[in-house]
Simulated scan of single mutants.
Amino acid sequence: MKRREFIAAAAFLAWSGRLRARGRRHRLGFLAVGDGGGQALNQAERALFDGLRNNGWIDGSNLIVDYRFSQPPDRLPVSIVDLIALRPDVLVVAAPQATEALKSATATIPIVFVAVADPVGLGLVQSLARPGGNITGLATYVPGSFVAKRIEILRELVPGASQIAILVNPGNPMHKLLLADEVPSTARKLGVALPIVQATTAEELDVAFASAAAQRADAIIVFGDTLTVVEAPRVVALAAKHHLPAIHFSRQFASDGLIVYGPDIADLFRRAASYVDKILKGAKPSDLPVEQPVKFDFVINMKTAKALGLSVPTLLLLRADEVIE
């Protein structure tokens, strides 16, 4: 073969190899919470795709992404069946209820979870270092100080607060764990009453906040949950209506809520992309340790504080990552 012919043949083989590589697209199934009841991805969830692009995975190019939503709750079983039927190479899921349901539905498809507080306590993984099975991901907190830290912040803002309500969803398995252990032990340790108000639907949120006000709560802790994320505007409006200083879990509440203190959820989704990348390249979930947050949001909204008649201590402002004027 002449040199020119050899070079042309080599170039053709390289080109055809790249063409075939582009043709082999992996499939990702994303079981998301969504924004406004599951019509589109919320802002934090969209960060997953920033991370995927940084790892070289482009939806529509070398990756096919199928979306299904876990909200409203009656959509969850159908969404899971739909995603599994598509035979994805990897599944990404947000929130504990959906993660538990997805793990129960498949023991073979790799799963990456995001925004699950205590995956060990929930029995999703054997340990953070060695998850075992077909699931791994990113947790949202370190057990033991979740409630106490929020009480500390609220007491700085509302001196003398002795009764702080906690809004929970009884259908959230993580909330059940906290109510069984950390909430009562924190109440005893700090000498504060922590009345529990519950909501599983948007309408029950109204009743829950009215109950907290009727019990003369000095403030309220809003536990992170799919319901409160989807109904964030309603939650903020109810806190204002009942004149309850509230501390929220995610940055989604920062624009109108009083205080946000919690992990940077968008950063967790962005980091989840590296798990997807490794799994698509052959890694097993059981060999990928569960990671915890490295970035936290602490935001104080001064407009809301003034509307509630609160004077925010300077030391608290100095500790905040962001102060909204």
Rank of each mutant, 00 (worst) to 15 (best):
N54R: 14
T140K: 06
I64Q: 14
L19M: 11
V222P: 00
L83C: 10
P96K: 09
R22N: 11
V114D: 03
E322N: 13
G34D: 01
P143T: 15
K189G: 07
S250D: 13
T200L: 00
L316A: 04
S16D: 08
A193N: 12
S70E: 07
G171D: 15
L268T: 06
P170C: 09
A85P: 04
A273L: 12
G171L: 12
G56E: 05
I324C: 13
V78H: 14
V236S: 11
D277P: 09
P73E: 02
N301D: 10
A232V: 14
E45P: 10
A283G: 06
T106E: 03
R4N: 08
T314F: 09
I7H: 10
N62H: 07
E182M: 06
G51S: 11
H175Q: 04
A320P: 11
P73G: 06
A47E: 09
D118L: 09
R27W: 01
A199T: 01
R216N: 13
V183S: 05
V112H: 04
A117I: 10
P73V: 08
A214G: 10
L227T: 08
V142C: 07
D287R: 14
Y141I: 14
I80W: 06
G36Y: 06
K176A: 15
A10F: 02
F49E: 06
L238Y: 02
P293D: 08
A11C: 10
L124K: 08
V183C: 04
I111L: 02
A8L: 13
G29E: 01
P313Y: 01
V92I: 14
E152W: 06
A10D: 04
T140R: 10
V93Y: 09
A212R: 02
S274T: 15
L28G: 02
L122P: 00
A199Q: 01
I265A: 11
P285D: 07
N42W: 03
L316W: 04
T226P: 02
L244T: 03
G34V: 03
A320I: 07
A237T: 13
H175L: 05
I300T: 03
F249S: 15
V147Y: 02
T228Q: 03
H242A: 03
R68F: 06
T106D: 05
P72S: 11
Y261M: 08
L86Q: 07
Y141V: 15
V78G: 14
R46D: 08
R251P: 05
R87G: 00
V222M: 11
V192F: 08
H248G: 01
A11R: 04
G224Q: 07
V183D: 03
G191M: 09
I84Y: 04
A232C: 13
A180C: 11
T201Y: 03
M302T: 13
G191K: 11
E291T: 15
L190F: 05
L179I: 09
M302A: 14
Q252H: 04
A8T: 14
A199K: 02
L177H: 09
R24C: 12
R251Q: 08
G29C: 08
A283D: 10
Q163F: 04
K306H: 12
L310N: 00
Q97A: 15
V112N: 05
I84H: 05
L157C: 05
W57I: 13
V197L: 00
H248I: 05
